[in-house]
Design a protein around this nucleic acid. Structure first.
Lengths: 211, 211
DNA sequence: TAGAAAATAGCGGTAAACCACTATTTAATT
DNA sequence: AATTAAATAGTGGTTTACCGCTATTTTCTA
């Protein structure tokens, strides 16, 4: 039984091109071609492919929205993102959503086939150029530790418990402190981290990797 | 002028071993060897190396704590983490702190030298085995989108503004809504995301990649 | 050992969040 | 055309967070 593949891309040239490439592949059958997100959402109700080659930039619905919707309703469909953009933010977003691969459009035939087969077998596939970019991204994402390192031991403890959704009273009980003391620590945190409220505290704590 | 290198490792065998490897390297000079974090923090006040080979697991101070402290006070020192653990969580933590490389202890001489030189020149270095692990980690970190995808358009808007540290009143003004409406959306969010308060909202929003 | 920073605790007060309801109007879907 | 979900708005109330002070004790560090 060949791999059932659906293609979603608003550029007929791309869709046709991939079709042609796959025509020679005995183990892959292109079952559907969609030109936009709406058509895809409609068509996939009738017939789910094994793998969906999904263009990142469609005219009607955004790539992440489509991926989220499809993975929610048809989790057995494996999505292989097809994009001409190597913006690492977008790559990460699609992978986080649960897409099984990210394929750049300048890939050659061999790579495309390899990607499809890898994903079909349950593996993940990234265009080789992206691997290095992702690694570099890890280094680039250094959190400005200025703020967090100035926090005292107690402030860190309190902050952690705030993130864990505890109230000041609960924190006081846990740390055997007066409610006032916890309030003081909390206000120190607001000032030191230069945020306005609890939402800001949690945000910078998570974004700077305090927890 | 040779590269000034400091080694911090509580296993004399490791420290000596690296020393021996580097003895043959003309362009690297081991200036200091520390057996624990306290000694390192004391010694680095007197003399800062170009590169610090830092063991991840020291008896007294944790690796991340040491790295944070040193990078804050001596930002010109480049830290190359030396560890026998490939636990990806730890790798990411050290890189986020600003370490310039992560070297596994089973590396051979060539790799060690290459890592030191790369980092000295301002580059980053990861033990080859870690590259693949980091990539796989990207795929593994799929956020459970169940919760977030059930949010309505308005709820997402409100949630985003909560994360941006706005109060309900400010959100109401921004979206031209009644304060009550915003409160209702907020409480719906609390229920849907199964959290207790603002801290929980921000936490799941950030962790599930809603923003 | 003197001074600084941290941790502790308190007071009084305002603003904001949280909770449980009801209820109407507006899409979306069958 | 009927049902459902979403968006809207309200009442009334409790709890929690936020703010600016003061002040003492402890711990660190120069």
């Amino acid at each position: 039984m060949p791999i059932k593949l659906a293609i979603t891309d608003d550029h007929p040239i791309v869709a046709k091109g991939i079709c042609n490439i796959l025509r020679d592949a005995a183990n892959v059958e292109v079952t559907d071609i969609y030109a936009n997100g709406t058509a895809l959402l409609k068509g996939i109700k009738e017939r789910q492919p094994d793998i969906l080659l999904l263009d990142m930039h469609l005219p009607d619905v955004s790539g992440p929205e489509l991926a989220a919707s499809i993975l929610k309703n048809y989790p057995q469909v494996r999505i292989l993102v097809l994009s001409s953009s190597d913006v690492i933010f977008q790559v990460k977003k699609m992978l986080k959503l649960g897409c099984m691969g990210y394929l750049l459009k300048d890939s050659d035939e061999t790579t495309i086939l390899q990607a499809i087969e890898t994903v079909y077998k349950g593996g993940q596939f990234l265009s080789p150029a992206l691997n290095q970019l992702l690694i570099e991204d890890m280094f680039r994402n250094k959190k400005s530790e200025k703020k967090t390192t100035t926090l005292t031991r107690r402030e860190k403890e309190v902050l952690q418990l705030i993130i864990d959704e505890h109230t000041n009273q609960e924190i006081a009980d846990k740390l055997f402190l007066s409610l006032h003391t916890v309030e003081n620590h909390r206000i120190s945190l607001l000032h030191k981290l230069e945020v306005k409220n609890t939402a800001g505290l949690v945000k910078v704590a998570l974004q700077t990797g305090l927890v």
